[in-house]
Computed example of a mutant assay.
Amino acid sequence: MINTQAILDSARKTILTESESIANLVNYLDEDFAKATGIIHQSKGRLVVTGIGKSAIIASKIVATLNSTGTPSLFLHAAEAIHGDLGMVQPGDVVICISKSGNSPEIKVLAPLLKRDGNILIGMTANKDSFLGKESDYVLHAYVESEACPNNLAPTNSTTAQLVLGDALAVCLMELNNFKSDDFAKYHPGGALGKKLLLRVGDMLDDTHKPAVLPDSSIKQAIFEISAKRLGVTAVLEGEKVVGIITDGDIRRMLNDRDNIAGVVAKDIMTHNPKTIKPTEMAADALNTMENFAITQLVVEENGEYKGILHLHDILKEGIV
C-alpha cells in the first residue's frame, strides 16, 4: 500500500533542500561573475555553452533562455565537440563550459581546446579547484553541499544551481542590453505570448461589420442593426463621429422601463461618451480596458473617424487569454 505521507514528506524535503542550495548561491557570487557577464556583453562573437550529461541539458536550456532574451548563443555538446563539432566555436566567441565536478574526462580534453584560438573560457562548476576551474578565465561558482538524492549521487541540487546561475546571467545581460518587452516580442512571434506582445486592435478588426445608426433612427432600426452585425452593439453616428452607442442591454432596459416605445429614437437611449480605442493600440491593452470597466465592446476610432467595434470574443478567439 502506498504511504501517502511518506511520499509527501520526501517531496517536501527535496524542494526545501533545493531551495536552500539556491539561496546559498548568493554567497558564491563574486567579481568573476560580474566580469564574465561584462565580457559576454561586450563580445562581438556568439556565446557558446557546452556541457556533458545532465549539465548538457542545463546548457541547452540556458542557450534557449539567452537566445530569447537577446544574447545570440549556441549549444555545443561536450562529447560531440571532440568528434568534430568543435568547429562551431569561432574566433571571438565566448565559451561557457558547465560541469559540476570540473574533472570529467571529456571536460579535461575539451577545456584546453576551447581556448586555442584565444577564446575566453568561462567555467561553471561546483569546484573552483578542479581542472575546469583552473583552466577557465572566469569561474561561475555553482557550489552545492550535497544533492537532494538520498544517495547523494543523482544531479538534483547541482543542476538546479546551474540553471539558476544561467537565469541570473541572462537577466543581467537583458539589463545591460536594455532589453524591453518590444524586443522580447521580436523573438516570440508565435503562440499566446507572441500575440499578446504583437497583436494590435487593427489586426483583429472586421471593418466590413461596422454597426451604425443615426441619432434619429428608430429603435426598430437599431435593433435590426445590432442583430445583423451580431456584435451586441451599434454605434450612433453624426457623420463619421461616434456620439454614442446602443447595446442589447440598453434595448432590454428600455423595454423594461417603458410601456410605450413609439417615437423613441436612438439618441434617447444611447450611452454617451463610450469607451474608445485606437487601431494602433495593443490587443492586450484593449482587454485590460474591457476588464477594468466590465464591458465587452470597445468603439475603435482613429483621428475622430469611426473604424468599427472590437468585441471581447475577437480577443478570446485569438487565444490571448
Rank of each mutant, 00 (worst) to 15 (best):
Y138Q: 02
Y143P: 03
D206E: 08
G166W: 04
P211T: 00
A161H: 07
Y143C: 08
F179E: 11
P215A: 01
Q221R: 12
L199H: 00
M174N: 03
E147H: 12
N178K: 15
G190W: 05
D216L: 09
D182M: 03
P211H: 07
L199M: 13
R200Q: 12
I219E: 01
L199N: 00
Q162A: 15
Y143V: 09
V171E: 03
A185L: 08
V139G: 02
L169K: 15
V213S: 12
C172P: 02
T159R: 03
F184C: 11
N178L: 10
A192Y: 04
L176I: 00
A161P: 01
K196I: 08
E145Y: 10
P211M: 02
M204V: 04
C149W: 05
D206I: 02
E147L: 11
L197Q: 14
C172N: 10
L214P: 00
D167K: 06
G190C: 09
D183C: 02
M174K: 09
A222G: 10
S217Q: 06
S158Q: 04
K180I: 05
P215K: 01
V201Q: 01
A185I: 03
E147M: 11
S217P: 06
P189W: 02
Y138V: 03
G166L: 12
S146V: 02
V139L: 10
N178H: 12
L169A: 15
L198S: 09
L198D: 00
S218P: 05
K196G: 13
Q221E: 13
T208H: 07
P155F: 01
S218M: 05
S136A: 14
N151I: 12
G190P: 05
K220N: 09
G190A: 14
D167G: 03
F179W: 07
A212E: 01
K210E: 00
D137R: 13
R200K: 15
K180E: 11
A161F: 04
M174I: 01
L169W: 05
L214M: 08
L199S: 04
L169R: 15
V201P: 00
P150H: 09
S181G: 05
D216Q: 12
L165N: 10
D203A: 11
D183L: 06
L169C: 09
N178I: 07
P189H: 04
T156Y: 11
G194R: 12
D207F: 03
S217R: 07
V144M: 13
R200F: 01
L176Y: 08
